[in-house]
Amino acid sequence: MDASLKAFMKGIIDYAGLFPPADLSLDTAIRKYSMYRKIDDSWMLSRFIMPGWQLDELKPYGEELFQEGEPFAFSVLGKGTETVSDYQEHLEELIDVLQRFHATHGDRVTTDILEIKLPREAVFAYDDKLLAEIYTETLERMDSSASTPNEIFFEGYFDKNWKKEVGLAIEMLHSVNADFDGANVKQGAFKLRCGGVKADMFPSVEQVAFALNKVREQNIAIKCTAGLHHPIRHYADSVNTKMHGFLNVFGGAMLSYAHDLSNNQLEEIIRDEDPDRFSFDDEGFYWNDLKVSTKEIAELRDVALISYGSCSFDEPREDLEQLGLM
């Protein structure tokens, strides 16, 4: 396998088997994840995405699955909320359940990432001070305990004024990060939703490119979720729309870091449906004549382009094999 593909795909997939379209039961999903941890391709696997309000339901697996191999790694998912007060209340609930979870399972589990939607009230008020208060309160509350996540990924919204909304959310996150000096929490980061079970849940190429370049400009890490089961952008009958490809999105973002691409240039990569234009060798990843080195890929994956959630761990690997990349 080419070194650049290894660096690109290392730990990139957070397993989201609980969520549509897979929509598996907790028992089936957690056992599938446990099995994936033992196969040859486990190096591509990262965390199990787990709703925070369901963490207590994992207690029966503590003496069985959690005792095998490395500690079970979880990315904890928060609920979407409408108001700031609902968000604050949910934050306290998450902290309580996280503390119980770690008290029960000790060092056999990790919960280093929290994924949480910003309260709609804060986003659509277009109030930078209110957003800053939300970010600061979340980082400080999570920083108060070593058992709570140390990377917080805040999810925004693509609405009518999406450039203003997403732009402000990312800019204020940068501002808060610059002033925050936590003992446990490393940073606030951004979560980009790339699809769903309906066509209107997929952001446009323009929206994805804007978000990717905005986090790059503001030095914010990003993780993605939903809609990235396959390497290359394509039309999917199941949702009656085009689905983004993880090579397009992550590869485009890497090339944008390497070459300071404009939004229009990045859009061209994200929009491309020709797999022959994407290639790997030991030296780097290429799209047409643009290259990002293997060393740069490893560095970006470590600090900037973290992972993406997928309800399937099989489809991404099978597609890479079909493309002759594995």
Rank of each mutant, 00 (worst) to 15 (best):
N263V: 13
A258V: 13
H259G: 01
Y257T: 03
A258D: 10
V249S: 01
A258K: 10
S256V: 11
L255E: 02
N263M: 05
D276L: 14
N263C: 08
N264S: 08
S262Y: 13
N264G: 07
F280W: 02
F285N: 03
L261G: 00
S279H: 14
M254N: 08
I269F: 00
R271N: 10
L261R: 02
P275F: 06
N264L: 11
D274A: 13
G252E: 08
R277K: 15
A253G: 13
D260I: 10
I270Y: 00
S256D: 14
D276N: 15
Y257G: 08
S262L: 10
E267K: 11
P275I: 08
E283K: 09
G251R: 04
F278R: 01
F280R: 02
D282K: 04
F280Y: 03
D272K: 02
E283Y: 10
S279C: 14
D281F: 12
V249A: 03
H259R: 07
D274Q: 13
G284M: 04
D281Y: 09
D281H: 07
M254C: 15
H259W: 09
I269K: 01
N263A: 09
F285A: 02
L255T: 06
A253V: 06
V249R: 00
V249C: 03
E273N: 11
E267I: 05
G252Q: 07
Y286D: 11
N264C: 06
N263I: 10
F250C: 10
A253C: 15
D276H: 12
P275R: 05
L255I: 07
D260V: 07
R277F: 12
S279D: 11
E267N: 07
E267A: 06
I270M: 02
F285L: 11
S256H: 08
L266S: 01
Q265H: 14
Y257V: 03
D276T: 14
I270W: 00
N264F: 05
E283G: 12
V249P: 00
M254H: 14
I270S: 02
F278A: 01
P275K: 07
F278L: 03
P275S: 09
L266P: 03
R271F: 11
N264W: 04
N263L: 07
G252D: 06
G251F: 00
A253W: 10
G251Q: 09
D282A: 05
I270E: 00
D276K: 14
S262F: 12
S256G: 06
G284S: 05
L261W: 07
Y286F: 14
A253E: 08
Q265R: 15
L261M: 12
S262T: 15
D281E: 09
F250K: 05
N264P: 05
D281T: 08
D260W: 08
D282V: 05
Y257H: 15
L266A: 04
S262M: 11
N263K: 10
E273W: 04
F278Q: 01
Y286S: 15
S279Y: 13
H259I: 04
E273D: 10
D274P: 13
S262C: 12
M254F: 10
D281G: 06
